[in-house]
Amino acid sequence: MSYLLHLLIFFQIYAVVAMSLNLLIGYGGLLQVAHAAYFGVGAYTAALLWTKLGVGFIPGLLGAALMSSLLSLLVSLSAWRFRGDYFVMISLAVQVVLYSLMYNFMDITNGPYGITAIPKPVIMDSIFATQEATFAIYVVIVGMLAFILAAAKLSPFGLSLQAMRDDELAARSLGIPVRRLKVEAFMLASAMVGVAGGLYASYISYIDPTSFTLDESILMLSMVIVGGTGNVRGPLVGAAVLIAIPELLRFLSLPDTVAAHIRLLAYGLLLILMMHWRPQGLAGRYRFE
């Protein structure tokens, strides 16, 4: 177990989380407070496909992507009547409902006991059991996801999202189909974070609902806000910083019970400082308002 490699693998996973959230927040101006729930849906879907159905590693990840994005489509369609600010409330409700499903749906998710013995990646009969091997295969997968997200952001789709973020009414009056754009952005971001959930499950080999709470969603939001929105670099910086904070605090060797609170305090302080001194984030382009 190399500590540095462990951090790097976490960075890979959260890079996908932050980049996909940035598509919504930074490019589309859409506040998503249920990202951790979709991350969890991906983690559970992949874990169940691998452990219960014996599906292969890559098909399991694809299943996670599909499940998360279909779920977001379902949410978008059933909340079709709600607009703008109300949708944040819907997204909050989604976070809470999905969490309690994970917690209470004993038959499928095993409730608070979670799912154990989630297998390491196996691709074409090669097992990626060691940390080095996991890191290597994750580099490839995360690289592909980053490429897809970058392509989306640079495409007419990304340009239209930015136009919508800047002035929704002006965009609509130029014929830009903002409703469809929003639904698609949520589906794409959910698919990506679903895969990240699968990578997470496989790496730590055990999941339970506590990893997919509202607090986690807020941590994910912080990554994007701290790193900076609206460009590709920002969320990577944010993910690295927010992964580093708890590790740095470790060197203070505080007792466990205090450490958790100190960590939350540190996040909060960081957010406030960022809002005050650098609202565009450490490496961002667009000022988050």
């Binding site: 789709f157 589906m187 382009r285």
Partner: peptide, 29 residues
């Protein structure tokens, strides 16, 4: 006026391209 303020003049015009651009996410990726 309502231009898209964070975008360049060119991107403002480009974003308006009516039937020319395929804006779907799927096409984008």
């Amino acid at each position: 006026i309502r231009l898209f303020p964070t975008m360049t003049a060119l991107d403002n015009v480009l974003a308006a391209s009516a039937e020319l651009l395929d804006r779907t996410a799927l096409a984008g990726i």
